[in-house]
């Protein structure tokens, strides 16, 4: 009898061991490391208490990174979640239905290409003699032309723009699936009542895909705080540190400056931010179900 009671717990043991070994143990270790000053190849770890945190909150680069992450989050919300929804609704509209398969594929392809390939591609687009500046010249806007990745004012926006181009297709796909689940009878009824396309979108589509919108927002928001590879490939945080995000700042502290304690501190901050975001997500989901 005792065995029967224990059974479910015993089944949980292996996964519990794996999860604690590979997720919780490093997490706790990382918190410990942030109180020390040490580098990868020195054996000595010097306890410095909250010094790393104090340094972080005085670090101008940290605020620059945080600002860039927030920019990333805000713009991604607008273009990926907002824009993705609009594109999905247009593609699922009866008028476009015939072509939607082609467009769906076209929008989705960037999601499938590896970021390093896309990074290289956009490097060519953004160089001073690149595609973008040539385009601006041909339409008479040469005064706007600049070295997009080398200009401190434009570098982060150039990276964010690439990210929108790359991921909008993914969010669009999520919305298309959600829209296809809406019962067609709702649309037919609205049509009979003489509702306009915009009204149908706002009154039927948007409320019906709300749950997907929450999921998409959470994915996009936490993605914006975890972003690393796109920035790393395009600008590596430069020029100066104008396009640094938390992820690249962590990387630079750890592997360029060899300041592992400081890097751990940044990692903890990123962890806290994403933790708050996921708690919010869980709260929002609960209210949805009620």
């Amino acid at each position: 009898m005792v065995g029967k009671k224990m059974t479910p717990y015993l089944f949980l043991v292996p996964s519990f061991i794996l999860v604690s070994l590979f997720i919780y143990y490093p997490l706790i270790q990382n918190i410990k490391y942030s109180f020390f000053e040490w580098n990868t190849f020195s054996a000595i770890q010097e306890f410095t208490g909250f010094d790393n945190y104090q340094k972080l909150f005085k670090d101008k680069v940290f605020y620059q990174s945080l600002k860039n992450n927030l920019l990333f989050a805000a713009i991604s919300m607008l273009f990926q979640v907002g824009g993705g929804l609009v594109i999905a609704a247009i593609l699922e509209d009866t008028v476009f239905k015939r072509f939607s398969a082609i467009f769906r594929t076209v929008y989705f392809i960037p999601v499938l290409i590896s970021t390093s390939v896309i990074g290289l591609l956009f490097n060519f687009i953004y160089t001073p003699e690149g595609l973008l500046n040539q385009f601006l010249q041909s339409v008479g806007l040469e005064s706007w032309a600049t070295g997009w990745l080398g200009n401190g004012d434009t570098a982060i926006y150039a990276v964010i723009a690439m990210s929108q181009w790359q991921s909008i297709g993914y969010i669009m796909m999520l919305f298309i699936v959600a829209i296809q689940k809406i019962p067609p009878s709702l649309y037919e009824a609205a049509l009979l009542d003489g509702a306009s396309k915009v009204q149908v979108f706002l009154k039927i589509t948007v409320p019906m895909v709300k749950e997907t919108a929450v999921v998409a927002s959470v994915v996009t928001l936490s993605g914006a705080f975890l972003v690393f590879n796109q920035v790393f490939i395009l600008t590596n945080g430069g020029p100066g540190q104008a396009s640094e995000v938390l992820g690249t700042q962590l990387y630079h502290s750890a592997f360029v400056n060899g300041d592992m304690g400081y890097a751990s501190t940044i990692a903890n901050i990123i962890f806290v931010i994403t933790l708050i975001l996921s708690i919010l997500q869980m709260k929002l989901f609960k209210t949805e179900k009620e």
Binding site: N151, G152, G238, G240, Q241, A242, H252, V256, N257
Partner: peptide, 17 residues
Amino acid sequence: DSKIVDVYLNGAQQMLN
């Protein structure tokens, strides 16, 4: 030292901008 290099070269890059 790499920490000085980091600040020095990033600064010079911004100076050129």
